[in-house]
């Protein structure tokens, strides 16, 4: 009951944030961007054509009405029509989400599990050679541009060794695996650096707590302490870190998709950038923000479920 009340209160608190996000996007796309009609119609458009188009796009209405349109789209997910493909943007998003998720979801689950295991391992050997080695390796991995990993892995494994398809996509399991495995591996390599670094810190924070000393004094084995006590207590920051990343899975792996020709959401954004398709970019800005806000709320609620010490008001 308390959880329900808490959730409802947090939901109410989301409203001002949604209004705020809509306002930032409205300022960027409706005020700063100005009049997009010359881009759409070219230089030789007649005044009448411009007027008509402005009316069609709702640009002749007051700024307040235009702002309310943005707010409305944040709730209804009705983002209008793409300028370049003339399709409904919400339809495009739904149809292109599937390829994105077949790439990012498995990669995300595998890389998170891997990273937690590695950080448990180095937490066990904390302060010794292997721990230092992993720490330095993480920083080194993080210091290379993601673009370089993609270029190199694609060139080496797909082009040079011909182990994987260079690019393309086929829907349906297991057909897509031939195309998503290599980008998935790159995703894992990219995430392991920051993930292990974060999880290791979280676990080391717990390892020096009094309760761990007590457990050790009771004569528990170090492995039992790590798995039963440390991991459990480290769960709160780990959950936050993991859940907060989920919205980015929906966004798709922008660069990976474009390099490997996977027709996902990342590709939609790239096409929109190349064809100056403002409504699509705007839709993605709104959509990803809303998803982010919602997942933030889920994290907060999970927090309260996992850790009873967190006060519910």
């Amino acid at each position: 009951m308390q959880i329900l009340q808490y959730t409802l209160r947090r939901l109410l608190y989301l409203l001002p944030v949604i209004f705020g996000v809509s306002f930032v996007i409205f300022i960027l796309f409706n005020v700063v961007l100005g009049d997009p009609t010359p881009i759409l119609l070219g230089k030789n458009a007649t005044l009448k054509q411009i007027e008509e188009l402005r009316h069609q796009l709702g640009l002749d209405r007051s700024w307040l009405m235009q702002y309310l349109d943005v707010v409305k789209s944040a709730f209804t997910f009705d983002f209008g029509i793409s300028w370049s493909t003339k399709q409904k943007i919400s339809d495009i998003i739904i149809s292109r989400a599937y390829p994105s998720l077949t790439l990012t979801l498995p990669a995300f689950v595998i890389s998170t599990t891997f990273s937690i295991l590695i950080s448990l391992f180095v937490a066990y050997y904390r302060g010794r050679g292997i721990d230092t080695f992993v720490r330095v390796l993480c920083i080194a991995l993080m210091s290379i541009s993601s673009l370089v990993y993609i270029l190199f892995f694609q060139w080496f494994f797909a082009f040079h060794l011909e182990w994987f398809e260079i690019s393309g996509y086929e829907p349906g399991f297991p057909d897509f695996l031939a195309y998503t495995t290599l980008p998935g591996i790159i995703w894992i390599v990219l995430s392991i650096g920051p993930d292990v670094r974060f999880f290791r810190t979280v676990m080391l924070d717990e390892i020096y707590q009094d309760y761990v000393r007590t457990a050790r004094a009771k004569g528990l084995r170090e492995v039992t302490i790590l798995l039963k006590h440390v991991l459990r207590n480290a769960l709160v920051p780990i959950i936050t870190y993991v859940v907060i990343q989920i919205p980015f899975l929906i966004l798709g792996a922008l660069l990976l998709e474009s390099f490997f020709g996977i027709p996902g959401l990342g590709g939609v954004i790239l096409e929109a950038i190349n064809s100056s398709d403002f409504p699509v970019i705007k839709a993605f800005a709104i959509l990803t923000s809303i998803v982010y806000i919602v997942f933030n709320l889920i994290t907060d609620v999970l927090y309260a479920v996992v850790d009873p010490r967190i006060k519910l008001h």
Partner: peptide, 14 residues
Amino acid sequence: TTFSSIPTIMLLIS
């Protein structure tokens, strides 16, 4: 909170 709710990459691109 408003600014941090817009994913950085989307804000950067926009």
